[in-house]
């Protein structure tokens, strides 16, 4: 089953003085249902743009994106977006933030809160549901962001460098946490990152984007079975080989990588 099909998608902007910039060009990609696919690329390669196109936040200028076989026209409740900057509403508590997308959809308040609590528990924040975002660490804030996305019970999670603003240790913990949640819920995940290691550790497939205009340069299958253990994966020689191959591909393109 294919969850998302990206069919020859292009995105261009017309800037000042009518100058046209191609952000994405000729993107073909298919994401299997329940799969975990990473979009990897240097900053400015258009990977976030592509992810926002998948959500319908940005309209495409060429081609078509189909979700469950149906062309998308805008954001829908079958997809949920996780932002790099967490984007929690600072005046709401953890519970209030997770409840937010359910308001106006689920009419019973008790039901809304019960759903929210279930996902707050899943991300391990049950003791903090009355806290405000500014009282939480970055890692905890992004757990709220993930709980909020899960609360709408989407088929697809669209994650835009969700751990990019976190320190290295927190980041690794969150990766393990995310895999656990993915294995538990069976959601389809499209994950944007500029870290080769993160992409390899998390995903079943890595699509590498090249810059200006963003194109898919290559796709790599990641052979490790789930559930993954961090030390076994990172220590595996196939991991090192893949890492080496992707780096070689990227070096030909740019030096703008962090790791």
């Amino acid at each position: 089953m294919t969850a998302i099909e990206v069919d020859d998608v292009g995105k261009s902007y017309t800037g000042k003085g009518g100058k046209r910039t191609d952000a994405l060009s000729g993107i073909r990609l298919s994401v299997p249902s329940g799969g975990f696919v990473s979009l990897l690329g240097p900053s400015g390669c258009g990977k976030t743009t592509l992810l926002k196109c998948l959500d319908g936040l940005i309209p495409v200028t060429e081609g078509e994106i189909r979700v469950g076989g149906v062309p998308i026209t805008g954001p829908g409740r079958d997809r949920a977006f996780v932002f790099q900057d967490f984007r929690l509403l600072p005046w709401r508590t953890v519970l209030g933030n997770v409840v937010f997308p359910l308001e106006g959809v689920v009419s019973s308040r008790a039901e809304r809160e019960a759903t929210a609590r279930r996902y707050i528990e899943m991300v391990g924040l049950s003791d903090f549901e009355r806290h405000h975002p500014h009282e939480l660490s970055g890692g905890m804030q992004q757990r709220v962001g993930i709980a909020r996305a899960l609360a709408v019970d989407p088929d697809i999670l669209l994650m835009d460098e969700p751990f990019g603003a976190l320190d290295a240790q927190t980041r690794e913990l969150m990766q393990i946490e995310l895999l656990r949640i993915w294995e538990l819920t069976g959601k389809t995940v499209v994950f944007v990152t500029h870290s080769v290691d993160e992409a390899l550790f998390l995903s079943q497939r890595v699509a590498v984007l090249s810059a200006r205009p963003g194109r898919i340069a290559a796709e790599f299958e990641v052979p490790f079975a789930h559930p993954r253990q961090e030390h076994t994966v990172r220590g595996d020689s196939r991991f090192t080989d893949l890492r080496h191959d992707i780096w070689r591909l990227l070096k030909g393109d740019t030096h703008a990588f962090s790791e």
């Binding site: 959500d55 936040l57 954001p75 409740r77 977006f81 932002f83 984007r87 937010f100 997308p101 709408v152």
Partner: peptide, 9 residues
Amino acid sequence: ELARAYGVP
């Protein structure tokens, strides 16, 4: 953008 992503009218 957040509100739009989550389909809030």
